[in-house]
Design a protein around this nucleic acid. Structure first.
Length: 436
RNA sequence: GACCCGUUCGUCUAUCGGUUAGGACUCCAGGUUUUCAUCCUGGCAAGAAGGGUUCGACUCCCUUACGGGUCGCCA
């Protein structure tokens, strides 16, 4: 039996991290078992569907690297994969309900008559859950066909999972109470239900439900902020699932190898952006300089900074010092232009450093007198200047860093000396002298 | 309100009756780096509460509290 999973978003808003994780778990499960991952668009709500939303969801899936074997763009033998194009199929299944006398008209709509008995589901994550349908007040017969003739979610969702031969339905816990309804429908059809696995929801840092507008909610924000897709996948995979090892950084292949539904947690997790950034940094560390430069370039351009011929070299200097691509422009702006800001705190430290204030003039002169400029030559000049005054070279290094970059943190000093060149270094030291 | 599900450091989590309750993020303190970052070491920090069961409970059961979910001609 081939395992078949599906992700079934409705195009009524952007792809959010909860949906992305649901898609990811379905994808991982299918890949892990050599199965098929289906994308189905649940666009039965004509009033709320938008083409933009549909596109945003596809873009998000592509960006995350979650390719689907069947569905829009991919084709397949169980199409069409847009529910709006499957009316005839639904009509056929609805007729079965009519024949079996399981639906009745109510105000122009059709309701499904529940079997009044306890219904137990065997969830792969939640275990056994029983809902008692004898309590009619709590489980009123549900509408399956609207008065305008269209079908509602519960009906089309169940029919399509059956029609598309889905073997495992992995979805958010918000669907847990829907499942007994779906089981009743499937029983009325005389069909075999798929396996179900309900995964816990993702919450905001404060524990409230994560929804539109919340920070980190939209998948489309991640490329904008300079996250790597692999890092986002890594992070959301670990939210509600654990690999039973102390390793925390995984690529997609490793996640596929390790994934299993038994290791999915039961309780909702809060989204911690700080840890997500850390995961991103870990992934960034493993990137080649060329790949890093290519990804950072658009950010630098967008910040209005010039792209020099030696851009890759410049980027190399900050590569291992940022957690996000979006931090790159601010991290190297002083290397690409002469106007940059000074951090008060850093300048204050230099001002308080008597050795620096006393020797800065000599250092600028020593730099200016060098016939050949290189990081090593400049460092040698710094050492000579310091020792001539009976000071340690190290005492001048932080002040020099501030003079060259305006800040206390940044690239390696040697990289800055080399990239800025002789004239700029002399100029910037003299500029700082004036400020202190 | 009714019905479901859940509850270990601030956060993500390990533990499947016997542990000094482990790891990671964050934060703090050292060290490495003559500078910055990386990195290394150390530290702060947890079983919601109350009852049982048991020789023994974070682990099993009950109650309460809290959190989340669901109760649509939305999906």
């Amino acid at each position: 039996m081939t395992i078949r999973t599906r992700f079934a978003p409705s195009p009524t808003g952007y792809l959010h991290v909860g949906g992305a994780r649901t898609a990811l778990f379905n994808w991982l499960f299918a890949r892990k078992h050599g199965g098929v991952f289906v994308l189905r668009v649940e666009d039965t709500d004509e009033a709320r569907n938008t083409e933009e939303a549909r596109q945003a969801i596809f873009d998000g899936m592509h960006w995350l690297g979650l390719d689907w074997d069947e569905g829009p763009e991919a084709g397949g033998n169980f199409g069409p994969y847009f529910q709006s194009q499957r009316s005839e199929i639904y009509d056929r299944w609805f007729a079965k309900l009519v024949t079996a006398d399981r639906v009745y008209e109510d105000g122009g709509a059709w309701r499904f008559r529940f079997d009044r008995k306890p219904v137990t589901m065997h969830d792969l994550v939640c275990g056994e859950v029983t809902i008692d349908y004898r309590d009619e007040s709590n489980t009123p017969d549900m509408v399956v066909k609207r008065s305008d003739g269209s079908y509602v979610f519960h009906f089309v969702n169940v029919v399509d999972d059956l029609e598309m031969e889905i073997t495992h339905v992995i979805r958010g816990e918000d669907h847990l109470m829907n499942t007994p309804k779906h089981l009743q429908l499937i029983e009325a059809f005389g069909a075999q239900p798929p396996h179900y696995a309900h995964i816990p929801l993702i919450l905001n840092p404060d524990g409230s439900k994560m929804s539109k507008r919340d920070a980190g909610a939209a998948v489309s924000d991640y490329p904008r902020q300079g996250f790597l897709p692999g890092a986002v996948v890594n992070f959301i995979a670990l939210l509600g699932w654990n690999p039973k090892t102390e390793q925390e950084i995984f690529n997609l292949t490793e996640l596929v190898e390790r994934f299993s539904l038994e290791q999915v947690n039961r309780s909702p997790g809060r989204f911690d952006l700080e840890k997500c950034k850390w995961v991103n940094q870990q992934h960034l560390l493993g990137l080649s300089v060329d790949d890093f430069a290519a990804a950072a370039k658009p950010m630098v351009v967008a910040a209005g900074l010039p792209i020099p011929a030696n851009f890759t070299e410049v980027v190399q200097a900050v590569k291992d010092k940022v957690r996000l691509f979006s931090e790159v422009p601010a991290a190297l702006d002083f290397l690409l232009k002469d106007e940059f800001s000074y951090e008060d705190e850093a300048v204050e430290k230099v001002r308080a450093n008597a050795t620096a204030t006393a020797l800065f003039g000599d250092l600028a002169d020593a730099f200016k007198d060098l016939s050949e400029w290189s990081a090593d030559a400049a460092k040698a000049a710094l050492t000579t200047t310091a020792q001539a005054a009976g000071a340690k070279p190290g005492q001048l290094m932080f002040p020099l860093r501030v003079a060259l970059s305006g800040r206390g943190h940044g690239p390696d000093l040697g990289d800055m000396l080399k990239l800025l060149g002789q004239d700029r270094c002399v100029l910037r030291i003299r500029q700082l002298i004036k400020m202190i």
